[in-house]
């Protein structure tokens, strides 16, 4: 290590040595989360099986959450999810560790069409397009939907765009978003897409009340799209008012939304 290298080491250590974390609280929190993950893992086999069954062929799991008398959500949200994996995949090898080449990337529908579809599928009262990247880089689109008065964010971007590689990274496979070995909520879909389902937890952040909850789901599709859906029980992210006891979309609804084929032209 050169003198300059050791100087950087000293600098990093000096800048962080006198930080005083609440070790007991962090350890308790880590153990609590770990136990929660263990519990979910134990019942996760059943849940994951049901989820796959629900996605592949059945509406039995999904529909009850969608078609209730008090729900304005389009039942198509479930059937779209089902069709996502029923349709034959253009990639014959469903390998989540395979980085998809750019020419396999499906084309998205127009931004306004995506917004309209989101409105229909979620039964939202309004949908706002926050980010629409037309530069061709990662083609990110971010929408905020107001569902039963609470915010649902829907974000899609190309996770494996050429800039990733130009920036020194390796081409990313779907498996880059999570590892089933360490995250029980991480699963691989039959088409090779990788899915991470993160159940309800506090939104977190400085001064954010514990009653601000969110449920999130991230999907890395087999062809290179990453879709993140976050449902909240509040009118806004980390601020606003609590309008429901729980985030306004169930995990199954969010999965059906993320795996819908309606986003692709």
């Amino acid at each position: 290590m050169s003198p300059h290298d050791s100087g950087v080491t000293d600098l990093l250590r000096r800048a962080s040595d006198d930080l005083t974390p609440d070790v007991d609280r962090l350890v308790r929190g880590g153990i609590s989360r770990g136990r929660s993950r263990q519990r979910r893992a134990r019942i996760g086999t059943t849940v994951a099986s049901l989820a796959v069954i629900g996605v592949v062929g059945g509406l039995a799991v999904v529909v009850p959450h969608l078609g209730g008398a008090d729900s304005a959500r389009d039942p198509g949200i479930g059937t779209e999810g089902a069709s996502a994996t029923e349709a034959p995949s253009p990639t014959p090898a469903p390998d989540p560790d395979r980085a998809p080449p750019a020419d396999e990337l499906r084309t998205l529908v127009l931004p306004q069409d995506m917004s309209d579809t989101l409105l229909t599928l979620t039964g939202a009262s309004r949908v706002d397009a926050v980010t629409i990247d037309e530069s061709g880089k990662d083609r990110a689109r971010l929408y905020y939907a107001s569902v039963d008065g609470a915010q649902v964010s829907f974000w899609i971007r190309w996770y494996n765009n050429p800039q990733v590689v130009e920036d020194g990274g390796q081409p990313l496979p779907p498996s880059h978003i999570c590892e089933p070995e360490v995250e029980p909520d991480c699963t691989t879909l039959p088409d090779g897409s990788r899915l991470l389902r993160e159940e309800v937890r506090p939104g977190g952040g400085t001064g954010v009340p514990e009653t601000f909850l969110e449920r999130s789901l991230t999907l890395a599709t087999y062809d290179g799209w990453q879709i993140s859906v976050i449902a909240r029980n509040t009118t806004d992210e980390k601020q606003g008012e609590v309008v429901a006891d729980e985030p306004v979309l169930t995990m199954d609804e969010m999965q059906a939304l993320a795996t819908s084929t309606a986003w692709y032209a």
């Binding site: 929190g29 880590g30 153990i31 989360r33 770990g34 993950r37 263990q38 360490v182």
Partner: peptide, 9 residues
């Protein structure tokens, strides 16, 4: 805490 949770599992 996320890290500790994963290591715990």
């Amino acid at each position: 805490q996320e890290t500790l949770a994963k290591v715990y599992v």
